[in-house]
Amino acid sequence: MTASTETARETGGTSGDILAVAREQVLERGEGLTEAQVLEVLQLPGERLTEALALAHEVRMRWCGPDVEVEGIVSLKTGGCPEDCHFCSQSGLFDSPVRAAWLDKDRLVEAAKQTAKTGATEFCIVAAVRGPDEKLMEQIRAGVAAIRAEVDINVACSLGMLTQAQVDELAAMGVHRYNHNLETARSHFPEVVTTHTWEERWETLQMIRAAGMEVCCGGIVGMGETLEQRAEFAVQLAELEPDEVPMNFLIPNPGTPFAHLDVPQGPDALMTIAAFRLAMPKTVLRFAGGRELTLGDLGAEQGMLGGVNAIIVGNYLTNLGRPAEQDLEMLETLKMPIKALNDTL
């Protein structure tokens, strides 16, 4: 071994072309890229984007298959959150135009039905809270029971930080998956949130996993993080081994501390998608919010052919998505079958 490869191995970096290395390491052996390797991908010149996406797509087809997991989400409790996540229009600490709202049980069940009609296998109930109080838990109990009785769909929840008792109760209710995003690299988190820590989020995620629920954990690209921090985040997610990673692209929301940030650029976002896939060859990688502004219709297709294997259809929590039919048509054109419910259990 030469001195340079020795150093490269020690730092997790590589000698030789990073995509050639990834082909052997990730595609052939199913081993995700290291932090230094992810950074190398993120730093590739723009003219190599097509190649990076093509490799990420091969990796996804080889380790995940052609199926696409479709999910719908709804906001059960909107706005008025006591936390200060700087990207979020639902924080009650900012002067945002989003006002507090609660969804009643009938509309919640109706939203689950509409979602199931699209062929989606997952329906995620989200609340803008630090963690659930008893009023919210009561609504979740009633809502989850009603959906499970009336709709053929897996129920997921995203209710912030949980106590052990709440984790146990959600698992006992039959909640299939729990979403709790780490949002960004650990080193960047204090620039994004000051009312709680990355570590507190990590603890909730560990409890979810231990209780047997699937772990859904991702974040937002374009919150002022460096490429180094983006690579750091990819590897921190990989260490968590989540079942699913939702990828959002920043929507600069009026009134929030990040209102002045630019919408992430399409090529930058696409290279990030490829790099995340190469860091996590076997994880469900989902297109979540912000793709409409950052990527447009063409970019969405490029992402589906660049490592993404799951989508949120329809609207998001406070933002609108493309009409569900448009995404379903895209999947048909791309000849990517929607994952069936009996494959998810």
Binding site: I73, V74, G314
Partner: peptide
């Protein structure tokens, strides 16, 4: 400012 509820297929 209005109270807005977004759901999967509308608002």
């Amino acid at each position: 400012r209005m109270v807005v509820q977004v759901d999967p297929m509308g608002w």
